[in-house]
Design a protein around this nucleic acid. Structure first.
Length: 597
RNA sequence: GAGGGCGUAGCGAAGCUGGUUAUCGCGACGGCCUGUCACGCCGUAGAUCGCGGGUUCGAGUCCCGUCGCUCUCGCCA
């Protein structure tokens, strides 16, 4: 065997136990902590698998002592030593390897480390942009290491489940035709064809539908998707989806498959038992009851319709809004220990509501003997009993009301209040609460553009009972659409697709895309649909978001190895960057450029 | 495109109604230390208080502008 260039590891820093006592091992890793007591020197050596305490004793050779003294944080080192049991009183029960230590007899410095820009701790405390600039260091911290592993385990469990059920994993191209609808495309200029562009896929939507035409009736892909839109805590320019499509299925086939998939995956990855089936809520009910289409069901706090009570009240403001076709929604905030419903408390809730378009937040306090006081109480004089009963309010509770001409804004602004209360009053239970949101409207009216457009995307099937009224009443058409929601985040979105050319064209026309335009943009799909397309449908769970939630994080950056910041910049490699004129010229993006030397 | 929050040493923070030499912890550097595990102890260096302007006898602190980061609305299946 060839002589090694360095002392190669024979064990990892997480592997040694009592059973290894007496063995001579070599560890490779980084100096995590360094406690030098002069004649006694402890070094916590870390690798991906754990941390092991290395000891340099007073009987160490001068050479070894010199090497140990030279060590600094995050030096990459090899240590050869003897595994020995720690004295009983020195056992560290918080450490997986806390029963043993390695008495060093040789230390080799594999590489040195510059002074650190921040400490590598379990959860980094440095500002996010600094963490991103030094992402290679940030990724060394225990929290990031665990989350990257969780992500791997999650994806692996998905692959195993689907492969065992006859799904093929098929890659689709990431240089594709631009079919702009919805988000902005990232464009890639063509060198060979001046003025032409590829687009990076927003999702493999059309390609997977064409795979169905090809007979691959169970397909999935861990697909990278790109959208040129502003970033958010749960949105990046590029993200990863489990893209999945099946032929000869209806909605319930897809929902049941997903339920079984996530039951198995959560059990495998987190040893967590999900309910066999997830609750199904219509879009309309979700909006009315929770004020959003991605409700967090870890707490209840339902929104209640009080149009009739508001109408009978003496509150002119409410009545005007109701007469204009608006709505009044209410919420009963349960009395909580240590929280008084002060002006400040209510004011903050009002601010949260205003962000979503509410003009104000009306309130009343419920007192002893089923009385109301404060806020808008005087307008509800004589209705106290009825209001308290409707709201199922108890002594000390707070009743909140929002009125708005626009139903959706009325719902979402109260939804924002509900959401804030869930956090502020600590109502959110531990765990994972999935639900399906179904029966979405297929179209919504774009006021600016002055025409209908697809609420989700244009390839989703209308529910059969609306097929005759698509054109006459687009606003009432419900689609075979479904979203999967987890703890208040939309984690998957899917639908049964259209596989009929004529129906697809009707949808295009309603969305203001005439036939010739449709042929130009989506001709390849329509062409495929002329050759025996099967009925099909699918779904696309977001990997980043799901792992984020499983890891109890609030930003997907925490589960992506090299994310970009909110300004769409990667502080580590400083992309996007300028390129030289020669490159631009080759891509026909500029005409004047220096000739190649 | 719009709003909120933040910006003080390599990192994390304190700095009140403006008032002498800008404080603390971690880290770095030097020294001491035989059972630590966030080791401890002594010492040293390290800050144009994001940047520009203004008010003032005097600005980290007040005002205006600007840049950066971050959260959110818009946007985003």
């Amino acid at each position: 065997m060839a002589e090694e260039a360095f002392m190669k590891r024979t064990a990892t820093c997480g592997s040694l136990t009592r059973a290894d006592e007496g063995k001579t091992v070599i560890l490779n890793g980084w100096v995590h902590r360094d406690r030098n007591h002069g004649m006694l020197h402890f070094i916590n050596l870390r690798d991906r698998y754990g941390i092991t305490q290395v000891v340099v004793d007073d009987d160490a050779s001068p050479e070894l002592q010199r090497a140990a003294a030279e060590l600094k944080l995050e030096y990459c080192v090899a240590v050869e030593g003897l595994v020995r049991l720690r004295p009983d009183s020195m056992i560290n029960p918080d450490m997986a390897t806390g029963e043993i230590e390695v008495k060093a007899n040789k230390i080799e410095i594999l590489s040195k480390c510059a002074p650190l820009p921040f400490m590598i701790e379990e959860e980094s405390s440095a500002r996010e942009d600094l963490r991103l600039k030094y992402r290679f260091l940030d990724l060394r911290c225990d929290g990031m290491q665990k989350r990257i592993k969780l992500r791997h385990d999650f994806i692996r469990a998905i692959r195993e489940y689907l492969s065992a059920r006859d799904f093929y994993e098929i890659e689709t191209p990431t240089l594709i035709r631009s079919t702009p609808e919805g988000a902005r495309d990232f464009l890639v200029p063509s060198r060979l064809y001046a003025g032409k562009f590829y687009a990076l896929p927003q999702s493999p939507q059309l390609l997977k539908q064409i795979l169905m035409v090809s007979g691959f009736d169970k397909y999935f892909q861990i697909a990278r998707c790109y959208r040129d839109e502003d970033a958010r805590g749960d949105r990046q320019l590029e993200f990863t989806q489990l893209d999945l499509e099946m032929s000869f299925v209806n909605r319930d086939d897809v929902l049941l498959l997903m339920e079984e998939l996530f039951n198995q995956v959560f059990k495998t990855v987190m040893n967590y038992d999900l309910p066999t089936h997830f609750r199904r809520i219509s879009y309309h009910d979700a909006m009315n009851t929770y004020g959003c289409d991605k409700p967090d069901l870890r707490f209840d706090l339902p929104i209640i319709d009080v149009d009739d009570l508001a109408k009978a009240s003496g509150f002119g403001n409410f009545q005007q809004i109701l007469e204009a076709g608006g709505h009044v929604k209410a919420l009963c905030v349960p009395h909580a220990e240590g929280i008084d419903f002060s002006r400040k408390f209510i004011g903050e809730l009002e601010e949260a509501a205003k962000v979503y378009g509410a003009k104000g937040l009306a309130w009343m306090k419920v007192g002893a003997g089923r009385t109301l006081s404060g806020g808008v109480t005087k307008f509800f004089s004589g209705q106290e009993e009825e209001v308290i009963k409707r709201m199922e309010a108890k002594d000390g509770d707070l009743i909140l009301m929002i009125a708005h001409e626009n139903w959706k804004k009325c719902c979402t602004s109260m939804g924002a209040v509900r959401s804030k209360l869930g956090k502020d009053l600590n109502l959110i239970k531990e765990g994972f609460e999935f639900c399906w949101i179904i029966d979405f409207p297929l179209f919504e009216y774009n006021e600016e553009e002055g025409h209908w457009e697809a609420a989700h995307h244009m390839f989703s099937m209308p529910q059969v009972e609306y097929l005759d009224t698509l054109e006459s009443d687009p606003g009432s058409v419900k689609g075979d659409l479904y979203d999967l929601v987890l703890n208040g985040y939309e984690v998957a979105s899917g639908s049964i697709r259209i596989h009929d050319v004529e129906l697809q064209k009707r949808i295009f026309r309603i969305c203001n895309i005439p036939d010739d335009e449709a042929e130009k943009r989506f001709g390849f799909l329509l062409n495929a649909f002329r050759y025996g397309p099967p009925p099909h449908g699918g779904i696309a769970p977001g990997i980043d978001r799901m792992v984020m939630i499983m890891a109890n994080q609030t930003s997907i950056k925490e589960v992506i190895a090299f994310p970009k910041n909110t300004a769409a910049i990667s502080p580590m490699d400083d992309s996007p960057s300028t390129v030289d004129d020669l490159q631009l010229k080759e891509l026909h993006l500029i005409i004047d450029a220096p000739e190649e030397k």
